[in-house]
Design a protein around this nucleic acid. Structure first.
Lengths: 195, 195
DNA sequence: TAATTAATTCGATAGCTATCGAATTAATTT
DNA sequence: AAATTAATTCGATAGCTATCGAATTAATTA
């Protein structure tokens, strides 16, 4: 346990960044970091209309960065240091950002490559020359093999035939990428390399 | 010395926040936090056109958050963890945000209040009732007194007369705010309270 | 009670920007 | 050399938003 306070999620991160991504709001935060201010004072300091300041403070408040306290008939705003520190700690954690991309479909690229290259019957139009695409295709083909099972060469060719007639290239490349291992004319797929 | 790496200035802060203040750029950063990607891959993962990804990466690069490395004819982008950590540390420092508001004229509010209340000859239209404004006016009047010098009551009245005929109120309020001290009918202004 | 005043809300507008498609460039494969 | 292809650049557009002024609300002072 390095950190106790829960890390910010992607929504919180985004509203935090959006709140800070304006020159005048950044100044407001800078001023409130030194002392609380009323709307009117901030308006005078930044040379903006009170309605504009209200708007900015609303944005900051929705991100949890400032809070208001009614005092006589002024509205005194103060910085929520805790919220700010929480965000900074979140950024320092190695888990926060990756989590923000969690809902991204990590397989999108491969799927696109395959969609472009596969015929309806599941065979390949061509064996792509480009490294990244070739790798994506090979990874797809490798799924036709059960990990651990020993395949004689004849059976390997049979399976590869379903994808492309140039089985020699496919076989060579699969071995090259270590998606298949060969020894004494027998092939097998390594057990779950790593998800 | 708590921290060695120099703290970000206001420009760097703003471009950092602007760069992060977009849902798709946040996802890009999240993905690059796990491994480098090419423009094409990111486009496939986020379901956006490559030109759009290029644009986003440019914004991130200008904020110093990512860098590109040509590899064969791909452009492989990677996250600059150091830059990100630097920003997070900057946010944790108690100096960074105040510095971002440094160029704001801290006296703007008082100047505005005085401008609204002073006649051309330097006298007050009225003595404002509202606490904050009254305080601003009193602080201005207090400048007419030299710190440390002892003023007999008669001379105090003379000076206050230049601002408003109700010198009794002014005198009472100045003492109340401790901008003037009184003892045995003699007044003096405290030495430089704190700039 | 009437007049002031700080703050918010609302509607309108000008300026910015995320996104796309087309054109261009640079590198690779055939 | 010709064809492919990843990436960038450019121009156009739709959508967002910072800002203002006017209207409204709530609280205070006269």
């Amino acid at each position: 346990m390095t950190d106790q306070t829960t890390l910010p999620n992607d929504e919180q991160l985004l509203s935090f960044f959006k709140a800070m991504a304006d020159a005048n709001r950044l100044k407001i935060v800078g001023l409130l970091a030194q002392q609380p201010y009323t709307v009117e004072q901030l308006a005078a300091l930044l040379d903006l209309r009170p309605s504009t300041i209200s708007h900015h403070l609303m944005v900051l408040a929705e991100a949890g960065l400032v809070s208001a306290k009614a005092e006589s008939y002024y509205n005194v705003y103060r910085l929520e240091q805790g919220a700010l520190d929480g965000m900074a700690h979140g950024l320092l954690s190695r888990e926060t950002l990756p989590a923000a991309a969690a809902q991204v479909d990590r397989e999108g690229y491969n799927r696109k490559v395959l969609h472009d290259l596969l015929l309806p019957d599941g065979s390949l139009k061509i064996i792509p020359a480009q490294r990244k695409k070739r790798e994506a295709v090979l990874r797809h083909i490798a799924k036709a093999f059960e990990p651990g099972v020993r395949y004689p060469e004849k059976q390997v060719v049979e399976i590869l035939q379903r994808f492309h007639k140039d089985t020699a290239t496919l076989r060579r490349e699969l071995v090259g990428y270590k998606m298949l291992n060969r020894e004494a004319g027998v092939y097998w797929k390594p057990e779950e390399p790593q998800a």
